[in-house]
Every structure is written in structure tokens, then in C-alpha cells.
């Protein structure tokens, strides 16, 4: 077991973690933040995407033991004071989801993308979101929602 202190969505957590726990398991099973999903569990599907110190990562491939001193943002930390962010609004408006399982990962990746580039091209959107798979295959609406969110954020 290892003691870690990590910040999740602004809240600091002191945890005793088993060295073999992934960040994903720790978030879902121990902190009860079940918005982050487990898909493939090997870094291909992106359903488990979170931000670590502002950068996206597959939480299924991160050990909780690594996270001492780090800041994590999950889908639960994207809306502020009950208000959805522009990416969430755009995904709803454009119907950029079918079953919704991949959506938390897409919202995190899109939020990170728009923080980096407020006006990404379609190619850049598709490249940056290549690590998030939607098996309902609704990519066109997702790309549309990213473009709409970018436009909303640019004002």
C-alpha cells in the first residue's frame, strides 16, 4: 500500500492505495466518481480519459501510486457550480452521442483540445480525438459539436 495525496476536481484526497490499483479503479471504486468509464482497459478506446495536471491521459494505464501531488480533472469536474461547460452544451445541442458511454472521454479530450487551440480545423479535431472511440460511430456529430463549442467559446 502507498499513501498518496491527490487533488480531484479541486478536492484534495488523502488515500492509501494498493500499488496495483489504476487511477481509473481508484476514481470509480474508491472515490465513487463513476462518470469516467472503463472500456477496453488497454489505452485504445479513451472512455477513461481524464486530465492529469491539465493533460489528457488514459486513466486505465496510470497507477494511482504515481499520482501523489498531481491534479486530476474528471468529467464530474467539468461543469462549474451546476453550469455545463460549452463542450457539454454543444454535445447536447448537436446530439453528439448515442449510447453515451464514450461521451465523458470525448468531453475531456475536447475540453483539452479547445484549451490548446480555440479554432481547430476538422483534421486537427479528428486527429486529436483519434484516441476516443465511439462504437455507435457518430463521429460527424461529434466533430460538429466540437466546432460549435469552439465557436461558443470564441464568442
Amino acid at each position: 500500500m502507498k499513501h498518496i495525496s491527490m487533488t480531484v476536481n479541486g478536492d484534495q484526497h488523502e488515500l492509501l492505495v494498493d500499488t496495483s490499483w489504476t487511477l481509473l479503479e481508484t476514481l470509480r471504486d474508491h472515490l465513487r466518481l463513476t462518470g469516467t468509464k472503463e472500456g477496453c482497459s488497454n489505452g485504445n478506446c479513451g472512455a477513461c480519459t481524464v486530465m492529469i495536471n491539465g493533460r489528457t491521459a488514459n486513466s486505465c494505464l496510470v497507477l494511482a501510486a504515481e499520482m501523489d501531488g498531481n491534479e486530476i480533472t474528471t468529467i464530474e469536474g467539468i461543469a462549474t457550480q451546476g453550469k455545463l461547460n460549452a463542450v457539454q452544451e454543444a454535445f447536447i445541442k448537436d446530439g453528439a452521442l448515442q449510447c453515451g458511454f464514450c461521451t465523458p472521454g470525448f468531453i475531456i479530450s475536447t475540453t483539452a483540445l479547445l484549451q490548446r487551440d480555440p479554432n481547430p480545423s476538422e483534421v486537427e479535431i479528428r486527429t486529436r480525438l483519434a484516441g476516443n472511440l465511439c462504437r455507435c460511430t457518430g463521429y460527424d456529430k461529434i466533430v460538429m459539436a466540437v466546432e460549435d463549442a469552439a465557436a461558443m467559446l470564441r464568442g
Binding site: G43, N58, L61, V62, S109, A112, G131
Partner: peptide, 9 residues
């Protein structure tokens, strides 16, 4: 190499 998420780590 992999996706953006992979390249970040």
C-alpha cells in the same frame, strides 16, 4: 505513437 492521451504520458 498512439493517441494524444498516449503521447502525453
Amino acid at each position: 505513437v498512439g493517441s494524444w492521451q498516449i503521447q502525453n504520458r
